[in-house]
């Protein structure tokens, strides 16, 4: 959301991450914040619960904007492992690339990564929407349960392995599909939801250029034929 107030600046060259997060947890809704010199620090802007506008002026380390609720967090740089992990709502934008496990286990909200995301992007996603402008690494959307993963570049090995119900859209090449992940028909409702997701991510890719992947649902239930395998 648009900044409603003059941003409060916190400079991590002087202040600790703990001080920063405490200030953000005590901040009122509608306030805006700018974080300078993150220099790859871990746990920057985690556990936010209010409708804040937070701009981070450089790269962050592990778990940046993790557990986010309601806030809009923009990272002007790369993000380390687990950016926006366990997000519940709100928006996290990474203007650079993200390391592994981006959006892990996130229940809701929108995660946008302008660059690439590495391995296990959206692992165990539970309702989050993730839009990646570049490529994703191996085992992305592993055990995804709900939500949508949109990849505007290529996907690595074992995409959607052991997928439950998350929907995956890929524009580029898929190196290989994981167990129980299959290509599915792109129907009108899928083109419509993809168009909405791309718009939310401020991208101009054409929905018709994407393919859809989802669960074959063969791993859902115990099959008595397999009993000898256990």
């Amino acid at each position: 959301m648009a900044a409603l107030t003059t941003p409060t600046v916190i400079d991590l060259a002087h202040d600790s991450v703990r001080d920063l997060n405490r200030a953000l947890h005590q901040a009122g809704p509608g306030t805006s914040w700018r974080i300078e010199h993150p220099d790859g620090a871990h746990n920057v802007a985690v556990g936010l619960t209010e409708d804040l506008d937070v701009v981070i002026g450089g790269p962050v380390g592990y778990y940046g904007a993790g557990m986010n609720q309601r806030a809009t967090v923009t990272i002007h740089g790369n993000a380390g492992t687990g950016v926006a992990e366990n997000m519940m709502s709100g928006t996290v934008r990474v203007r650079g690339s993200a390391s592994q496990s981006a959006g892990a286990t996130a229940h809701g909200g929108l995660l946008v990564i302008d660059g690439d995301a590495s391995a296990r992007c959206g692992i165990s996603m539970k309702g989050v929407d993730i839009v990646v402008g570049g490529n994703v690494g191996h085992m992305s959307a592993f055990m995804g349960q709900a939500g949508r993963l949109v990849v505007c570049g290529d996907a690595g090995d074992a995409l959607g392995d052991s997928l439950y119900e998350a929907r995956i859209y890929v524009k580029g090449k898929v190196k290989s599909l994981g167990a129980d992940c299959v290509e599915k028909e792109m129907r009108a409702e899928h083109l419509a939801e993809l168009a909405e997701l791309l718009k939310a991510a401020e991208r101009d890719d054409a929905p018709a250029d994407f393919r859809r992947y989802g669960s074959a649902r063969d791993l859902y239930h115990f099959k008595v034929d397999n009993s000898a395998a256990y």
């Binding site: 220099d39 790859g40 380390g80 592994q100 590495s118 391995a119 690494g137």
Partner: peptide
Amino acid sequence: AIACKPAVVAETDAWVAMASEYRYFA
């Protein structure tokens, strides 16, 4: 093959560096 142990590389004309976490490069 699983690549669960971290690694990040940074490169300029003056040096190439590898680290477990980006912040080592700061």
